[in-house]
Nucleic acid binder design. Structure first.
Lengths: 230, 230
DNA sequence: CAGATGCATAATGTATACAGTTGTGGGAGC
DNA sequence: GCTCCCACAACTGTATACATTATGCATCTG
């Protein structure tokens, strides 16, 4: 037995800081900008312009673009400008369908494993969302809710895929009306899901999640339709 | 009205050749090597060594590694060597589970849409697989069969995900015994699936696919277990 | 001899320079 | 006026050079 290592705190700090490369920083910045919608579909990503903007050379910019391309955020062809990837309405719809498939599957494991404390956290997350007025914040909180809900399933790969699918279409949620009304609908749906999970009611939870995701899909697809044919 | 442009053929040829960048070529080469198992888990990917091997500079090598990292083939940390990513047994198992989920879902759409001609192609693919003796070729043909089967569902994103999940664990199929016996089992399972699809029997097809993938999962997981505790 | 320390080496990350491709605008030719 | 072509500008792709960080080894210390 020995006393706690006084350097332990420093180690953690180092771990948190975790010096990032410039390329990693650029990739994170661009990804966040695309995900939030600040960089919209088809925006051209000029390497020299980006390099100047960040005050760095083109090399790390290129590496960041390569990574984002592999992740699907950016479309690029040899010797041509990279552009922010467009996600077709069909792909968006399919993304929701697959999420529904994954999440209805995961919810069974969630119900098996979730603890009372985690349920409390979900309820708290629901309450927090009611307070939010900014749409962007609401979208982020919504993603966090789903992530938190599914993280209890202990299926890291499925969670990863579901999260990835969400994040790629998140920017299109913006279109589905800034209307708080709709968001409150979602809030009610979230609470119903949490209640079903708390009651360990697999069938109800599956049905509620499927309906919830399908509703969201409907809203987004409709919004895109209106956008195209106003 | 005008005669066919004689340059059109060149354009197509150009399109097929589709001049690739060096970085793209390196990424493809490495990906193929990892997928086939020629580069195994934990192999260090030294930039200068790779650059010398390909007879190029480090820049395109770095871009290739970035892309492969984003795709999950390579693990890298700042200022440290990149290594071929290891896929944990849990992740492999989960990968099969998610594939089962996706493929049992897709098979319904397949049955709705598949044509007689496509069914013939699937049968032909089954027959071709019987001829193969090389394990690596068999694995590739197996992947092709599943891809061909699901491509009739017209769900590009789901197909993409399923294919991606398969390709990432494909190299571990090698462990599951070179035994032709087991591969013949799979051949029988494939034929049964095609038969159910041809008969438009959704329930049977779902059950058969699920069993098939679960069997494969079992074989691979067992093989890994033996590998670790011989 | 175990463990820490400092230095040399090698590898990664970034900047700069150069090469090759694409796109564009203006002028020649019709 | 219109088209075609070519030169030039802008941009991407690659190589080389430099900066920073990690790692292995020899040395030193207790």
């Amino acid at each position: 037995m020995q006393t706690a290592n006084p350097l332990e705190s420093l180690k953690i700090e180092r771990g948190l800081l975790e010096r990032q490369t410039t390329a990693g920083y650029v990739a994170d910045s661009l990804r966040a900008a695309i995900q939030s919608g600040r960089l919209s579909d088809g925006t051209e990503l000029n390497q020299v312009a980006l390099a100047e903007h960040f005050g760095i050379s083109r090399v790390p910019v290129r590496e960041a673009l390569r990574a984002l391309e592999a992740e699907g955020w950016v479309t690029a062809m040899p010797h041509r400008r990279a552009v922010v990837a467009a996600v077709s309405p069909e792909r968006i719809a399919e993304s929701f369908e697959i999420r529904a498939l994954l999440e209805t599957h995961l919810i069974e494991k969630v119900i098996e494993r979730i603890t009372a404390e985690q349920i409390q956290r979900l309820k708290a997350a629901c309450n927090r969302m009611d307070e939010l007025t900014d749409h962007a914040e609401w979208v982020a909180a919504n993603a966090e809710f789903h992530h938190e809900l599914l993280s209890s399933a202990s299926s890291p790969l499925a969670l990863e895929l579901a999260t990835q699918l969400s994040s790629q279409v998140e920017r299109y949620l913006r279109l589905s009306g800034e209307s708080v009304i709709r968001e409150n609908e979602a809030g009610g749906e979230h609470r119903a899901i949490v209640a079903a999970v708390a009651a360990r009611d697999v069938k109800a939870a599956r049905r509620l999640i499927h309906t919830h995701i399908d509703n969201t899909r409907q809203r987004v697809v409709d919004a895109i339709g209106e956008e195209e044919n106003p």
